[in-house]
């Protein structure tokens, strides 16, 4: 913190501040306040524009066929993304199945066992760094590992790529949520002779569960819209596919394919798909948040 130099004679009665200086400072204050408000408006405007435009375009192109039909061939009207919605569901289910347990366990280790130790700090740091690794890199490493070996794209590879992206987020939120659990509760359990593992599972995790569920949901929402890691793993599919070792369609992939296509009909479907994707993400997050909050209230009473 730099301060202005003291006046040469500090004991003298302070000089009256010059009017010009005061005015300048006041003006500066108002200018900065104005700029700050302006920048907020400038930031909010495109964001609101994106949401409104998306809802407008998406809602006008949504119809029942979108949810029941598979993509129509080029030139034909109609068609939908039913296979992509189901495919996204399968991939995300696989990803959650692998990512959530590993993520939560790693978080538990960091919060309950590795607190303050070098190993704990190193793992925490690695998780943060892994969080920032671009998703496309995740895609090509899973491609190199699984797809190259198997010689074909598969839903499983897509699920693994997304699972890896979920782990660091879940780990960090689980750890932060466990850190907010008061020690008194843990000590009470330990004092009753409950083993440590039981304390962690039924006391710490239970108490922190709303926050942990929210964290999982946020990680889920984040990977639900990921396209880049699926480009070379799940690859996409124009038809129904439920097999785990075959290419499978996914909503973000289909949106990408349609968005860069030259056909108006496909653009329409891309907008509808985007709206569905976002609504699904938002609904999932909001629902879980509501339920998680209710759980907290119940636990407290």
């Amino acid at each position: 913190m730099s301060t202005l130099p003291l006046s040469p004679n500090p004991l003298r009665t302070p000089a009256k501040p010059s009017v010009i200086n005061t005015l300048r400072r006041q003006a500066m204050n108002h200018v900065i306040t104005g700029l700050s408000i302006l920048s907020t408006v400038v930031v909010i405007a495109p964001l609101v524009a994106i949401l409104v435009y998306l809802i407008y375009k998406g809602a006008s192109s949504l119809n029942l066929a979108f949810f029941t039909h598979i993509p129509a061939p080029v030139g034909e009207q109609g068609g939908g993304m039913a296979n992509s919605i189901v495919g996204s569901g399968i991939i995300l289910f696989l990803a959650s199945l692998m990512g959530i347990p590993i993520g939560i366990s790693a978080g538990v280790y960091l919060a309950e066992f590795g607190r303050g130790s070098f190993l704990g700090n190193a793992i925490r740091f690695t998780a943060d760094v892994l969080n920032g690794v671009p998703s496309i890199v995740m895609g090509i490493s899973i491609y190199s590992l699984i797809v190259m070996q198997q010689k074909h794209f598969s839903a499983l590879a897509g699920g693994i790529a997304l699972a890896i992206m979920m782990v660091p987020t879940i780990t960090r939120t689980t750890e932060e949520m466990l850190a907010t659990v008061p020690h008194a509760i843990r000590e009470a359990a330990l004092g009753l002779g409950v083993p440590k593992w039981r304390t962690v599972l039924s006391v710490s995790l239970r108490t922190a569960s709303p926050g942990i569920i929210t964290g999982c949901m946020l990680a889920f929402a984040r990977v639900a819209g990921e396209t880049a890691p699926l480009l070379f793993t799940a690859f996409g599919n124009q038809f129904w596919s439920f097999k785990l070792n075959e290419p499978i369609a996914a909503l973000p992939l289909q949106i990408y394919v349609y968005a860069i296509s030259p056909y108006d009909e496909w653009h329409r479907l891309a907008w509808a798909g985007s709206l569905v994707l976002i609504v699904m993400i938002m609904v999932a997050v909001t629902l879980v948040r509501i339920f998680a909050n209710r759980g907290v209230l119940k636990g407290a009473s």
Partner: peptide
């Protein structure tokens, strides 16, 4: 229990190393 938790958190290291080496 501690060992299992440790294993899971070590997997984060492994993922980073694995990406690095495979690339």
């Amino acid at each position: 229990f501690a060992a299992v938790m440790l294993l899971c958190s070590l997997s984060i290291f492994l993922i980073v190393l694995f990406i690095f080496f495979i690339l």
